[in-house]
Amino acid sequence: MRRLGSRKQRKSRLRGEMVLAGSSPSRKDVLVVEPGDHFYPLSVAAPGSMGRTGSWRTQRPVVNAEKCIGCYMCWLYCPDNTIIMREKAGPRGQDVASIDYEYCKGCGICANVCPVNAIEMVDESKFISQS
């Protein structure tokens, strides 16, 4: 079988830590088991245990940084921890919510709990022609 990852990564795997080879979350990179690399199948907490769940999305939440007051409500309620608060990044020096579109499932909870309606749900089809 193909040796996987750098020497340092193989060593850390021997200690029971799993280092994903490269940043690509494709299954074939991490499912290769080599004798001496894994003594037991150990799961490690990592983003994307179900793949890129952003592809489940039918509506995309879009943050209006002008309106955002940095109250952290969307961050508090987001079921998937895909809201990343950027500190003091807003136009008025306030904290601003941003969204990790790679994993956001598009449930719309953030748009519903926002007290100032700074998050708008936009149909995902609007973004297809751009990319």
């Binding site: 983003p47 245990s49 179900m50 793949g51 769940t53 079921p79 998937d80 790679e102 956001c104 449930c107």
Partner: peptide, 16 residues
């Protein structure tokens, strides 16, 4: 502690 991109349905209360 809850990793993004897990298997929960969109809007899952258990994740929250």
């Amino acid at each position: 502690y809850i990793m993004p991109g897990n298997a929960a349905c969109p809007g899952c209360p258990e994740n929250i």
